[in-house]
């Protein structure tokens, strides 16, 4: 009897390997978790898109739960998520933009046409803050709690279902915390 069972070993091994590889087929490595979850928002000192003379540092994020959105006028997916960002702002979520590898002209035109949901828009033409955030393709969004700790990371466009299911509940949770 045990000899018979031993014959099944290759089949079991094959099935295990097939399941493992099949899962790999549907696994999207782009959506992996940020290395910065649970860590402090990186230090920065950047001017705003609106005014080259106004500079902000990480104290901008203190005291309020904020969604930091890394975007650029050159990025079509960023255009796609603007209605969702507008909706979030309307529901009272504080948004801070990081205008990533962009020009002031293009960014201003973008905001004039699509609306401006951001409380502040940091201007990051060299992508230095983007680099410290580990951004590898806009848009990316980071939820930062009142103590300036990154709590949640979203890669790619924020879709309407992301707003309802992921972002608003988390904003609420970190506000209550």
């Amino acid at each position: 009897m045990t000899r018979r069972l031993l014959l099944l070993v290759p089949l079991v091994l094959f099935a295990g390997l097939a399941v493992f590889l099949y899962r790999g087929l549907n696994h999207d490595p782009v959506g992996r978790e940020s290395a910065l979850i649970g860590r402090e928002f990186p230090a920065f000192s950047l001017a705003t898109v609106a005014d080259p003379d106004v500079r902000h540092d990480a104290s901008l994020l203190a005291g309020k739960v904020t969604l930091v959105n890394v975007w650029g006028a050159w990025c079509p997916t960023c255009r796609e998520e603007m209605p969702q960002l507008m909706a979030l702002a309307e529901q009272g979520v504080r948004l801070v933009g990081v205008d990533y590898k962009d020009t002031r002209e293009a960014a201003t035109e973008f905001l004039d046409t699509l609306g401006d949901p951001f409380a502040v828009n940091l201007f990051d033409p060299d992508g230095t803050l983007g680099f410290d955030l580990g951004v590898y393709g806009a848009p990316e969004s980071f939820l930062v709690d009142r103590d300036g700790i990154i709590r949640y990371h979203h890669t790619g466009a924020i879709r309407p279902e992301n707003v309802e299911q992921e972002i608003l509940p988390r904003v609420q949770r970190w506000r209550d915390d």
């Binding site: 992996r32 940020s34 290395a35 910065l36 680099f131 410290d132 955030l133 580990g134 590898y136």
Partner: peptide
């Protein structure tokens, strides 16, 4: 680099 982009 790992601090920013992960062990990936």
């Amino acid at each position: 680099l790992v601090q920013r982009f992960g062990e990936y």
